[in-house]
């Protein structure tokens, strides 16, 4: 079986999805189901004091018994805030230690602050967290994060929520070629072909949220992404034909053409 192995655990789906920006929990549930994802990211936020405790929650729509939760540190701009957020997440999810670390550097671009990210990763790994880390597409930083003990390195394809697709396949290729842990493209995927290209490059998986939630029909796009990730993976495993620049090669026999 061609499974995705993260921190010693096997997953059959190579698509990881976020759970934000959906209309309601029902749409979230349907989209996640259609995506086939087994790992879903969640954010950690202050509770609304005075809210009715019987209100449905995300955990009802996506039971943690069925999905692997990946709590994130979205919105954190310092290593300290990210570490505190994930300590809270671990308590919230009964000791669950697989986490997505992201430390942002700028509210406009949401570009990762790799210096703070490295600081946070150091503390979290020491405290026993299994860190999947969002980072830039800098191959040196990616390698450093791997060597520190991050269980997956997750470079951006382009800015979070931008849907601009894979802007620097060359850097991603360097990261993939050098990595000994799964490389998962996180952020920037806009449509199915972007996900397929990421997988064709040799990524171990793709993580996305807005590409699905922001589609006109999120559930249908989730299904498309499911197939694109599988198609891209199979194409990668199959090994594409070599490109022959400006050199055509007929697919049909050249002899026996009528009238010749």
């Amino acid at each position: 079986m061609d499974n995705l192995n993260i921190a010693g655990r096997e997953y059959t789906s190579r698509l990881l999805v976020g759970t934000g920006k959906y209309q309601d929990f029902e749409q979230t549930r349907l989209a996640v189901e259609a995506s086939g994802a087994e790992i879903v990211t969640v954010a950690i936020r202050r509770t609304n004091i005075g809210q009715d405790a019987s209100q449905p929650s995300l955990l009802d729509a996506l039971p943690p018994s069925k999905y692997t939760y990946l709590p994130n540190t979205a919105g954190c701009y310092t290593a300290d805030d990210a570490v505190r957020t994930l300590r809270l997440a671990r308590e919230l999810l009964d000791g669950h230690d697989l986490v997505k670390l992201e430390v942002l550097g700028d509210p406009k671009s949401l570009y990762p602050n790799v210096v703070e990210t490295i600081k946070a990763a150091e503390v979290l790994i020491k405290e026993g967290f299994k860190v999947m880390v969002y980072t830039s597409d800098d191959p040196i930083i990616a390698k450093q994060l791997e060597q520190m003990g991050c269980v997956a390195v997750m470079p951006l394809a382009s800015l979070i929520g931008s849907g601009m697709g894979i802007l620097n396949p060359w850097n991603l290729q360097i990261i993939i070629n050098e990595a000994k842990v799964p490389v998962i493209v996180d952020a920037g995927v806009g449509t199915a072909s972007d996900a397929a290209i990421a997988m064709e490059l040799g990524c171990a998986g793709v993580l996305m949220n807005t590409a699905i939630a922001g589609a006109q029909n999120p559930v249908l796009m989730a299904s498309a992404m499911n197939k694109a990730v599988q198609a891209g993976r199979e194409a990668f495993l199959a090994g594409r034909m070599p490109k022959k620049i400006y050199t055509a090669s007929p697919s049909s026999p050249t002899s026996g053409v009528i009238g010749s």
Binding site: G20, Y22, A43, R45, I49, S57, A74, L92, L93, G161
Partner: peptide
């Protein structure tokens, strides 16, 4: 005190 819950996010 900080009191948190899990919410939808990416």
């Amino acid at each position: 005190l900080e009191i948190v819950v899990a919410v939808g996010g990416g």
